[in-house]
Computed example of a mutant assay.
Amino acid sequence: MEFRPVGSKERVATLDILRGFSLLGILLVNMFGFYLPMPHIADLSNWFSEAQDIIWQQLLDIYVQSSFYPLFSMLFGYGLAMQFLKAKETGASFYRFAPKRMIILFIVGMLHAVLIWWGDILATYAFCGIFLIALMRLRAKWLLIIAVVVNGLYHAIILSLYKAGGMFDTTTDSLSVDIVAIQSSIEAYGVGSWMDAFSQRLVDLSIQLSPFMWISSLFTILPYMLIGAALGKWRLIEGAKDKLVTWLVLAVLGIGIGIYMKSLPIAGAQTFGNEYLQVYIGGPMLALGYIAVVTLLTQLPFIVKVLSPVAKAGRMSMTLYIMQSIVCTVLFYNWGFGLFGKVDVQMGVFIALAIYVCQLVMAELYFSKFKQGPLEAAMKRLTYGK
């Protein structure tokens, strides 16, 4: 029996809209990494001194930061569960192609990280995806239980250590700053050549892709994928019209708890403990809320029609994600337009919005002639041989 990816007629509009929506959130967050020496900034909230920058950074901290990688992780798990169920229905071999796809995705991610930008997330998704594939045979409730237990225990242990160490009373402005590393990054990206940027990128990658990052991703990113896979096995998005109350509860709880948790370091004390709650509890809760709100809105046909450009962007999300890195490195690095360190937070947001709108237009034009994004088509050929 032939195993193939989801075709254009079988796509779920809500999932594509969510992917397209995620592209904007991811770009807004990644902008800091494009124009600032992010791997060497101990705490971004203490980096800015101008009132306007602080306000914009706080708004991004609450509504965007740490919410879109969990959202995309859940979508990743949901999509993989759809493929698993489809293979099961057709009698195809899911385990023949799924690991191969993760290996290819890992290679693409590492090439992206080494040659374009150090902040790649694709390789991490592929790494966690291998473990997700191994667990995919389990029933949906067990996927959800494993996700909650693994993620819950991990954060419970760390928060207990934070509490014992007084981290809920220690402010983040006590962090030391590596001035030498920051200056080196500014020189390499801001005034250096392509080779200078390449050398600095390898240094930044040693921080971004440290052994601790790979291990911690199994306790953070993988559980989000498992949650998405559980939702996918229950087909909660496809059957949203029959589960409106469930999605409404998720929307209220996700948005409410998420915004409250993410506001703690801003409305309250800016301590290590509150920032941990903001990132690792508030972030994924708000992501779940966003998924629920978009799912509810897309039950209205005119909303789906209005958001059609966003859905098209979601259909070529990997292509547009890599394109964002290419465009931004050209804009900010010295071998391009040299804007590294020369824009404020507000301008960074406007640049991100402008890039995103251009990508929506490009996706609309592209799908008037083609059925898949270029990288998506290449992935399909390499994975399925067609």
Rank of each mutant, 00 (worst) to 15 (best):
R4E: 10
E10N: 08
R11Q: 11
R11S: 07
L15S: 02
G20Q: 00
S22I: 03
F34V: 00
D43R: 11
L44C: 09
Q57W: 10
L60R: 04
S67W: 07
F68E: 07
S73Y: 09
S73C: 14
L75N: 08
F76T: 04
M82A: 14
A87T: 12
S93P: 14
Y95C: 10
F97T: 12
R101N: 08
M102H: 04
M102P: 05
I103A: 13
V108F: 14
G109K: 03
A113L: 04
A113T: 01
V114C: 06
D120F: 11
T124E: 09
Y125K: 01
I133G: 02
L138R: 11
W142A: 00
L143V: 05
L144T: 01
A147R: 06
N151R: 09
N151C: 12
L153T: 14
Y154I: 01
H155V: 03
S160C: 12
S160Y: 14
K163C: 08
G165A: 07
G166M: 01
T170N: 08
I182R: 13
A188S: 14
A188N: 09
A197Q: 08
V203I: 13
V203Q: 14
S206Q: 11
Q208M: 14
F212L: 15
M213Y: 06
I227Y: 00
A229T: 05
G232P: 10
I237N: 08
E238H: 12
V252F: 14
G254Y: 05
G258P: 13
I259H: 06
Y260H: 11
Y260T: 11
A267M: 14
A267L: 15
A267K: 15
G268N: 13
T271R: 06
N274L: 09
Y276V: 01
Y276D: 12
G282I: 03
P284D: 02
A287W: 01
V294A: 02
L296D: 08
L300F: 13
V304N: 12
S317G: 06
Y321E: 01
M323H: 06
L331R: 01
F332T: 02
Y333S: 02
N334A: 12
F340V: 00
G341C: 08
K342F: 05
Q346I: 07
G348Q: 00
G348V: 01
F350I: 13
A352E: 00
L353N: 06
A354P: 07
Y356V: 04
L365A: 11
Y366A: 02
Y366E: 01
S368I: 02
Q372V: 00
G373T: 07
M379Y: 03
K380Y: 07
R381F: 14
T383R: 04
